[in-house]
Each structure stands twice: as C-alpha cells, then as structure tokens.
C-alpha cells in the first residue's frame, strides 16, 4: 500500500502549479533578481594608458599652479622690498623735516633742508641716504658751519674714486654727517679720509685738515664718526660770525654724549 500512496502523492505534487503553493509567484520577476546576481554590474576597467594620461595632465596642472605661485611670491617680495624702501625714504624725510622745523623755530631763518645741503653730487646723495646709524654731531659754535669730508675709495682693477660729502650745521643743530661708510662698500675695496674742511659759512674762513696738518684728517674723522671718544683740537678760526677779529679754537668733544663742535 505504501508505494502506491507515495506515488500518488508524488504525482499530485508534480502536477501542481507553483502558484498554488506560492500565490503570485512570477518567474519573470524572480529572473530579474536572479539576473542581477548572475550578471553583477562590473566596475569599468580603465586602461593604463588612460591612467598615465590622467597622471600627466595632473602633473602639468600642478606644475603650472606651482609656477604661478612662485611668480606671485617673487612679485610680492619685490613689492614688499619696494614698500620698505618707500617707508624708509618717508621716515627719513620726516626726520629731516623735523630737524628743519626745529632750526627754523630756533633761528627764524629760512634754511634749506638738510639733504639738499648735505648732498651736492649724486654720489653724495647716495651717501647721505646711508647715514641713519651714524653718530649725531652738534654745532656748538655761534656760527653756521659747513663740514666737507673728502674720501678716497680704492678698489682692485679700478681707478681710485674721490668722494666728497658736505654737511651744513646751523648753530645748535645736531645731525648725522653724510659720508661714505666703510660698511657700505665692497669688501675688497678700501676707504680712507683724505681731507676734512670745516668752513664758517658767515665769513668763509676754512680750517683744512689733511695729512700735513698738525692733526690729521683721519684722526679728526675718527672722533667725528664716534670711533674715538674724548676731546680733540681741530683748528682755529681767527674771526667771529660777523667777521670781527676773534680767535676761536675749534674742538670736538664727546664727553657729554653727542659729539659737539665748540
């Protein structure tokens, strides 16, 4: 009996449509799921050539950006340098104007601005522009003075160059004297002070200091530049500001702080 029963059972199940057991069974819909599992979307393969091309383009772009940045950096640096130069010039001018205003208020006289007096030649103007760290020298005499410092610069394979720097100091005025600073020349060049002329502007009387004077120009210069400190005899004026006969020994002293001509 058992085999017949089982055969009957088997035939019944075999003849049975699936949707009798699973209502709404849709083979096409099931295939859509199956197909997705059988044929998953493959990631697109990119050839090595395309990768290399892309890498090359990226490198070129990066290089271009880097070059542009470098150019901007250089431009900014140049601009900063230019600005700093302008700021220095402005501050220098302000300093000069201040000194001029001080002199004007003391004497009531119209005196030309210091740089114009100091710098007579293009070379001197350059020298005048480098004097900010130099010692202040004050005219302690009652007469306006003009101090000319004449230097010789020697460089290898070049003719010796004469540099003349003239500075005007009103009575009571303190200023840094213009002259070529040894720090401002090439290391293989030498700079020596040849002569110093101290002229009383009112009378034109001039004290000339050179190698043959009782005290050399180099010695006086070492006091003017602050290299040496103390008092030094610089020469003698035989007349006063009004050209009256009056002997006046000119000295440089730095015992009181600033270098004073008196």
């Amino acid at each position: 009996m058992i085999p017949e029963l089982e055969r009957e059972m088997k035939e019944k199940l075999a003849a049975m449509p699936v949707d009798e057991l699973v209502p709404g069974f849709d083979a096409d819909a099931e295939w859509a799921v199956m197909s997705a599992r059988l044929h998953p979307a493959r990631p697109r393969m990119i050839s090595l050539r395309v990768w290399f091309s892309a890498a090359a383009v990226l490198l070129l772009m990066a290089g271009g950006v880097w070059m542009l940045q470098q150019r901007d950096v250089q431009r900014m640096a140049a601009q900063e340098q230019h600005t700093a130069r302008e700021e220095w010039a402005a501050s220098f001018k302000a300093e000069v104007d201040k000194e001029q205003a001080l002199v004007d208020s003391q004497k009531g006289a119209s005196v030309a601005a210091l740089p114009d007096k100091v710098a007579d030649t293009p070379k001197e103007r350059k020298v005048a522009g480098q004097r900010t760290t130099k010692e202040l020298v004050r005219n302690g005499t009652p007469c306006p003075l003009e101090i000319s410092i004449n230097q010789i610069m020697k460089c290898p394979n070049k003719k010796p160059a004469a540099i003349s720097s003239c500075n005007t100091l009103e009575p009571g005025q303190a200023a840094s004297l213009g002259y070529k600073d040894s720090d401002a020349i090439a290391s293989n060049c030498s700079l020596t002070v040849k002569t110093i002329e101290i002229k009383s502007i009112a009378t034109g009387e001039t004290i000339l200091l050179d190698e043959n004077s009782s005290i050399s120009a180099a010695e006086v210069f070492s006091y003017m530049s602050g290299e040496k400190q103390g008092d030094i005899y610089a020469g003698i004026f035989n007349s006063d500001c009004n050209n009256n006969e009056c002997r006046h020994n000119l000295r440089l002293g730095s015992r009181e702080g600033d270098i004073i001509i008196h």
């Binding site: 199940l13 699936v18 057991l21 699973v22 083979a27 295939w31 199956m34």
Partner: peptide, 28 residues
C-alpha cells in the same frame, strides 16, 4: 553566459524547484 538562454532555463524550472524547496523548507 547567454542571458537569454539562462532566462529560458530559469523560467522553465523555477516553479518546479521552488516546490522542491518548499518540501524541505516550510518558510516560503
């Protein structure tokens, strides 16, 4: 890997194999 042929095989036997599985596993 002909998808059309695979689909024919699947739709032809999917119902029968589902009934087979349902004999062993009750949950549809």
């Amino acid at each position: 890997k002909d998808a059309a042929a695979q689909k024919i095989v699947f739709t032809r036997y999917a119902g029968e194999m589902t009934v087979l599985c349902l004999r062993y596993i009750a949950r549809q």
